[in-house]
Design a protein around this nucleic acid. Structure first.
Lengths: 216, 216
DNA sequence: ACCGAAGTGGAGGGAAGTCGTCCACTAGCT
DNA sequence: AGCTAGTGGACGACTTCCCTCCACTTCGGT
């Protein structure tokens, strides 16, 4: 069902569509999924009309962005899985890379509104679950390897992911970027299986993350 | 300047004022500083009229909440400083406690809008700086102690603070709460001075955090 | 018990901002 | 060169939120 709309498009239209998607991704990540459509259009260098032609309404756009993101992450995760022999190193690489991508897994896990929009979509859900499955593999493997602390679950990791990816604010963008990278570094050290504090509660699994029906 | 409005108030008015502040704190923390005033009023069990009588506009409310929060945190930090002899343990305690308080330092560091509102207020600024100063002491002390990794600054810590305190979403509130606590635990292990990955860039200081004049 | 002042709630006028349509126009494709 | 897919942005309808205003209630002193 994606083949048709993406191949039938005229060359320039195709280009515009991609630009819209890219712009939306960036803007959503920074300002949340409720920014005016016009802002997205402007950032993409197109008119609102064009935007609406491609994506009938905001929900459609949010969904498309989420799908695109998830797909990318899934591909990355699988590539990494194929390339790295050590699950721990795979996990580490995935975590670090996630910052680069400035990806918004958070979009589906943290943002109030987006969550509602995406919740119903089975396709999105499927992708999300596939990603989590890969992470889960990494986690188990890394723990078997003795490199990852045994008292964490994929859910813990996912939450760390999501949390860390929130835009950090600082005096200058470079500082923010650096800060994010450093946070990841600290996190990774915190995750590694060296003697440290015992964590409270129980490992959080991916099941724990299922979107709750929440306020409003 | 706070003595008058807080003592002169009639008993019931006083109570309402406190309820408003408490409600606002919670709601701001969850949904940001732009929630409808009416929602806050409802949560506080009062009418909008009452809210506006106490706080002439949204900015005043945000400011009041921030002040209240900051004061609390500063008191905590100082109490801890007085009670703990080890700076590292002091830092650790402060970090853990911050989750309990569900405090919104983030309010002044992460939230787009609040930042703008608070930026100009010298009183808020003073408080913020005092808090950061205490943290800075903890950091230096803990590093001298050899307990805190030497390649982090107070700014790193502050960013971690702010980041971690963002509301985590999960199936159930208890899970979210637990998740937050676990994140802090992992972070603390990541911060401790054991051999680990070297962090990129340079330590982030509190100066790096000064609110940038940003978009919009 | 009573009364005046302090306090309260919430309806509603008005401003601001968004949405998504519509159509005259442009530029790819054959 | 012509046909059609594609484009942009002005615009009217609509939603949302702000904050004022005032008839009414409650407090607290006498």
């Amino acid at each position: 069902m994606t083949a048709d709309p993406e191949t039938t498009l005229r060359a320039d239209a195709r280009r515009n569509r991609d630009q819209i998607l890219a712009a939306a991704k960036t803007i959503f990540a920074v300002s949340g999924p409720e920014v005016p459509m016009e802002e997205i259009a402007r950032a993409a260098g197109v008119g609102v009309g064009t935007l609406y032609r491609r994506f009938p309404d905001r929900d459609a756009l949010v969904r498309a962005v989420a799908m695109d993101n998830f797909e990318r992450v899934l591909i990355d995760a699988r590539t990494i899985a194929a390339e790295e022999t050590s699950p721990w190193r795979a996990l580490e690489r995935l975590l670090r890379q996630s910052v680069e991508l400035q990806l918004s897994i958070q979009l589906a896990m943290v943002s109030h509104r987006a969550l509602v929009i995406l919740k119903g979509d089975p396709e999105v859900r499927r992708l999300r679950d596939e990603i989590l499955a890969v992470v889960e593999d990494f986690v188990r493997g890394a723990q078997a390897e003795g490199k990852l602390r045994p008292d964490v679950g994929a859910g813990d990791i996912a939450i760390l992911f999501a949390t860390l990816l929130r835009q950090v604010r600082a005096k200058a963008p470079e500082v923010a970027e650096m800060a994010a990278r450093r946070c990841v570094g600290i996190m990774i050290d915190g995750l590694s299986a060296r003697p440290g504090t015992e964590l409270p509660g129980r490992p959080i699994t991916s099941d724990d993350l299922d979107p709750a029906d929440d306020h409003g």
